[in-house]
Computed example of a mutant assay.
Amino acid sequence: METIESFKVKAGASRFGKHYKMKAVTLNILDIKISSKDTANALAVFEQTGLTPNGGPPLHTHPDQDEWFYVIEGDYIFQVGKKKYHIKSGDTIFLPRNIPHAFIQLSEKGKVIVAYLPAGRMEAFFEVTDKWESTPSKEEIYRVFESHNMKIVGPPLKAGSV
């Protein structure tokens, strides 16, 4: 791997100055803290601010990536395979590749650090969702997940079912 210079990303800032807004699936703001470009695609780290109480992504898999979350603020339920975990501020959860997973944000606002190992196409995925101006069709959501090496395998978690 090519050696790069060290860098600092200030609080509230994004690595390249772009705040991605994930729209339609949930409303989240994502700031790149460590880019795939910084790590030869070995790692990508985002700070995600969740603005959708009782919202979260559909049950999905990452066939080639592990994922980990550290909760800074808020309360969540994560489903990983058949297991469910209540995760709150200060907790960490690891999601192994190929295991179906989803989460639901229980609190009004949430904030997590999420890392993808390897980085894969997650930055490109958030670039696409940032451009959505209205709620895409279910087919479009499936297509965008699949074109970024993820597969939807079930619906989002529901507040009453967790």
Results as ranks from 00 to 15, higher is better:
residue 139 E to I: 09
residue 50 G to K: 02
residue 82 K to G: 03
residue 157 L to H: 03
residue 156 P to D: 04
residue 48 Q to N: 08
residue 149 N to W: 06
residue 144 V to F: 04
residue 130 D to Y: 01
residue 155 P to K: 15
residue 2 E to T: 15
residue 45 V to M: 10
residue 28 N to Y: 15
residue 37 K to M: 05
residue 6 S to E: 11
residue 152 I to G: 07
residue 55 G to C: 09
residue 96 P to W: 11
residue 119 A to H: 03
residue 127 E to V: 05
residue 119 A to L: 08
residue 151 K to I: 09
residue 104 I to C: 13
residue 29 I to E: 13
residue 152 I to P: 08
residue 15 R to S: 04
residue 105 Q to N: 00
residue 153 V to C: 12
residue 45 V to E: 06
residue 94 F to Y: 14
residue 142 Y to F: 13
residue 150 M to E: 11
residue 156 P to T: 09
residue 70 Y to T: 08
residue 88 K to S: 14
residue 115 A to M: 01
residue 26 T to E: 14
residue 75 D to C: 02
residue 45 V to C: 07
residue 43 L to K: 01
residue 42 A to V: 07
residue 58 P to R: 06
residue 48 Q to E: 09
residue 132 W to T: 07
residue 46 F to P: 01
residue 136 P to T: 08
residue 67 E to R: 05
residue 116 Y to K: 02
residue 32 I to N: 01
residue 155 P to E: 15
residue 151 K to F: 12
residue 40 A to W: 08
residue 37 K to N: 10
residue 146 E to M: 14
residue 125 F to N: 10
residue 91 D to M: 03
residue 158 K to E: 15
residue 162 V to Q: 07
residue 66 D to N: 15
residue 34 I to R: 03
residue 93 I to K: 09
residue 108 E to W: 01
residue 64 D to H: 14
residue 45 V to D: 08
residue 54 N to E: 15
residue 118 P to E: 04
residue 6 S to D: 12
residue 13 A to G: 01
residue 105 Q to K: 00
residue 60 H to F: 04
residue 96 P to S: 12
residue 10 K to R: 12
residue 149 N to E: 14
residue 152 I to A: 07
residue 144 V to C: 03
residue 115 A to G: 08
residue 7 F to R: 11
residue 2 E to I: 15
residue 135 T to E: 14
residue 93 I to C: 09
residue 53 P to D: 05
residue 66 D to I: 04
residue 44 A to N: 04
residue 108 E to S: 07
residue 62 H to Q: 10
residue 2 E to G: 09
residue 3 T to H: 15
residue 74 G to V: 05
residue 127 E to L: 04
residue 51 L to P: 02
residue 17 G to I: 14
residue 39 T to W: 02
residue 127 E to D: 11
residue 25 V to M: 14
residue 74 G to R: 06
residue 127 E to H: 09
residue 6 S to I: 08
residue 52 T to V: 07
residue 162 V to P: 01
residue 72 I to G: 08
residue 100 P to A: 11
residue 118 P to R: 01
residue 42 A to L: 12
residue 33 K to A: 00
residue 19 H to I: 13
residue 53 P to H: 02
residue 136 P to R: 03
residue 137 S to D: 09
residue 70 Y to L: 03
residue 97 R to D: 02
residue 68 W to H: 06
residue 159 A to L: 05
residue 30 L to G: 00
residue 74 G to K: 04
residue 100 P to G: 05
residue 88 K to F: 07
residue 98 N to R: 15
residue 4 I to R: 11
residue 90 G to W: 10
residue 34 I to S: 05
residue 26 T to A: 13
residue 60 H to P: 02
residue 161 S to Y: 11
residue 20 Y to L: 09
residue 72 I to V: 15
residue 85 Y to L: 08
residue 34 I to Y: 02
residue 110 G to M: 00
residue 4 I to N: 09
residue 128 V to T: 13
residue 64 D to W: 10
residue 19 H to P: 00
residue 52 T to L: 03
